[in-house]
């Protein structure tokens, strides 16, 4: 029995490793190329030929520092808004008794089904009318909440035993204070899931930032990277440095908080 299984095991590891290479090669290609001078691109060279000039060029000749800042601010505002507003709404739907609760919950579910294409055209007209194009307001305010995270938060809060809230009420805490002082501090896992999912979505967003922002100074990284790619495709080393700069923050965050990322996808994906 043992013997029969041993050979397929080896094959299994071999297969999983080959597939790993398929997934990793684009990352290594990007990282390696980003450190090469142009004349060594697509050649295997030793480490002493490596240079950080491509990164320096991006920060000095292009506005990558600026774009980094814009992306960071956009992501910070959006994620902060989502964490506070979505958990509050999710908690109300999970724990409070009030008229209209079921209808509001159905509205949340229905809103998740509407594709963004249906919204973006009028949204653009509205943004343009109030002069929010090329501003941080236009990139963040409409996206401070998200039905999917409200839904996730509700599913999470429903599992919290009501004894906890009852004890708080007996201690004289109001419902609102109970949420902020008792419930939120023990809700780290749902907050982490919302943070990491919303961070990656916002950081990587392309459709909205490329439509609402036309001023080069106001670009976010992904949009800036695309314009550099369009104009300098013959310089793979420069473009790959841009790719690394764009993806690195998300990669680091993912590797650190992978658990919550997986939890978030599993709960939102399975039920949605």
């Amino acid at each position: 029995m043992q013997k029969r299984l041993r050979i397929p095991r080896v094959l299994l590891y071999l297969l999983l490793s080959v597939i790993s290479i398929v997934f990793l090669i684009p990352f290594f290609y990007a990282l390696y190329t980003s450190f090469l001078p142009l004349q060594y691109v697509d050649r295997i060279v030793s480490f002493d030929k490596f240079t950080i000039n491509n990164y320096v060029t991006l920060f000095t000749k292009f506005k990558v520092g600026r774009w980094y800042w814009n992306t960071f601010i956009m992501t910070l505002i959006t994620v902060t808004g989502n964490v506070i507003l979505d958990t509050m709404a999710g908690y109300a739907l999970a724990k409070f008794r009030f008229r209209g609760r079921n209808i509001i919950f159905i509205i949340v579910l229905a809103s998740m089904m509407v594709p963004f294409q249906l919204i973006i055209t009028p949204m653009y007209i509205m943004i343009a009318k109030i002069n929010w194009h090329n501003t941080m307001m236009g990139l963040t305010i409409p996206f401070l909440y998200s039905p999917i995270y409200i839904f996730m938060a509700r599913q999470f809060f429903i599992t919290i035993p009501k004894e906890l809230e009852e004890a708080a009420t007996i201690d004289g805490l109001s419902k609102a204070k109970t949420f902020f002082k008792i419930i939120l501090p023990i809700s780290g896992s749902i907050i982490a899931s919302i943070v990491i999912l919303n961070f990656t979505t916002t950081w990587n967003a392309y459709l909205v930032p490329s439509t609402f922002v036309t001023d080069r100074d106001k670009y976010v990284l992904v949009v800036g990277l695309r314009t550099v790619n369009d104009a300098h495709f013959a310089r793979p080393n420069l473009i790959m440095a841009g790719v690394i700069l764009t993806t690195l923050p998300v990669l680091l965050l993912f590797l650190r908080f992978q658990k919550y990322f997986v939890q978030g996808i599993a709960t939102s994906g399975l039920k949605a």
């Binding site: 979505d86 509050m88 409070f96 809103s111 055209t121 409409p142 996206f143």
Partner: peptide
């Protein structure tokens, strides 16, 4: 409890009305 619930839902409701319902209908 009811008032707290509506207050908790208010910010999302306002954003949803302006940036979801109006654009969808307008579209």
């Amino acid at each position: 409890e009811e008032i707290t619930a509506y207050l908790f839902l208010l910010p999302v409701a306002v954003l949803w009305f302006i940036w979801f319902l109006i654009p969808t209908a307008y579209s």
